[in-house]
Nucleic acid binder design. Structure first.
Lengths: 250, 250
DNA sequence: TTTCGTTAGTTATAGCTTCTAACTGAAGCG
DNA sequence: CGCTTCAGTTAGAAGCTATAACTAACGAAA
């Protein structure tokens, strides 16, 4: 079990076990510890060669035990991947929330400009998170894995992310008041915006949050997939330009 | 070799063999025919369960021959996938070109409005192409496959696609003349726009083409991956809204 | 302290995959 | 007509997921 190496760097990226670390019987404690190490090795493999190269066998051997032992901890390869996806999603939500909290602090200090600082900060946090581990980003937002179906609790996590986004959108200067909520899609979303949950956001804000998500994902996804390499321009500069367009009141 | 079924539905999606069908010796002709059928079965498998589920063995068995025979036609699984990606790319370029040619015809007929009709038509062609086979779209623009590196000729195909895009962008009404090419990224792209090849496009047009690509990809990618399901709004309406924003002169 | 159930880990095995090696048979070409 | 080339075969190595059966150790309870 590689007692020394073990979970030495546990809690990588803060996406470790959500259960309390020192809880329950010693057996249970050991169990959560091994589960955590398995996930860690899994993340290593994913960071190296992507999710499709994840091998339970290789993980087991690198942990000093033999193949089928892992099936005591994860019912199947898909179950492990599902849990990794959920952890990644969770980590992104935490990142967004942390960034939102920081932003609120700055605003109260009077240092941050009110116009779009929060949304821009969120965008940069998103880009940082994506570039920190591209494979993790693709695991969440990339090509869907064949047999995977999102468990129920990810919708809750997605709501958290959306809430942080909507909060930032609410702090933006509104569009010219004449055309607020008057675009065709704004009217559509007024009737189909239940995904915002209880958030008191205007249709225009929902629209803006959606655009934020899809536009930045469009840039990040293609950048991380390497579709910009060889084109010569600076991906970061383009990202900033897109963000700029997103913050513009028009 | 399933003589009857054979390449009955050959040339699926028009992305079949690029080599002339009845060329060379009978052996060579047979060879290209078998290669085409292999690709066809491969596309079937990909359409069913994605590229990761593509199995040479299964293809061979479904063609009535046993596993290793396929290695006469494709050196490896990766080589087959690479060729499929290139074919898909090729097909998208043809789709774009066909759409651009149609648009030009309409414009000369005087039926089409001049403002952004071409770009909108291209956007709809792109969405149609993506939704016709989501797995194919993800094969080209989705999570990069582990060992894959784009062959040299895809840059040429990408140039074709970009050329069609830039042509459409050139037909758009320019932005307010005061700020043309004066955005920070426009200035950046003026120095780093060699990816346009010989196309006589202004920096603002290059910028718009890039935004077109990334914004629509952002919507399509998330829509096809199922990230909108359960949110309740209409993906097509949102796509149209994004397109609208893309066509706006601001 | 001894007993006894739970459980972690093992090996063996089935069935799948890619891919290599050696061989057979037939088709094309001179 | 004969030689050569090549398609397709079977056999097999190495890897994967996953299941089944078994062993051994641990923890709690009598």
């Amino acid at each position: 079990m590689s007692e020394t190496g073990g979970t030495g760097t546990a809690g990588r990226k803060g996406a470790g076990t959500r259960t309390a670390p020192g809880a329950g019987s010693p057996r249970e404690r050991y169990r959560t510890q091994v589960r955590a190490e398995i996930k860690e090795r899994a993340w290593e493999q994913i960071a190296d060669a992507g999710a499709s190269a994840l091998s339970l066998n290789a993980i087991a051997k690198r942990m000093g035990m033999s193949g089928p032992a892992l099936y005591r901890y994860f019912g199947s390869r898909d179950e492990l991947i599902t849990e990794l996806i959920r952890d990644a999603y969770r980590d992104l939500a935490d990142t967004f929330r942390a960034d939102a909290d920081n932003g609120r602090g700055d605003a109260e200090d009077g240092t941050g400009t009110a116009s779009g600082a929060d949304l821009a900060s969120l965008a940069h946090a998103m880009r940082r998170w994506a570039r920190a581990d591209p494979h993790r980003y693709f695991l969440v937002f990339g090509t869907p894995v064949p047999g995977y179906h999102a468990p129920d609790d990810v919708t809750g996590i997605a709501s958290e992310i959306m809430a942080a986004l909507l909060d930032a959108c609410a702090k933006l200067p509104a569009r010219t008041s004449a055309e607020v909520d008057d675009q065709p899609f704004d009217r559509h979303i007024k009737a189909h915006g239940q995904w915002a949950g209880e958030h008191p956001a205007t249709p225009a804000q929902l629209h803006r949050a959606l655009s934020f998500w899809t536009r930045l994902h469009g840039v990040l996804s293609l950048e991380l997939a390497g579709h910009f390499t060889g084109m010569g321009f600076d991906a970061e500069a383009f990202f900033e330009a897109e963000l700029e367009g997103l913050l513009a009141p028009a």
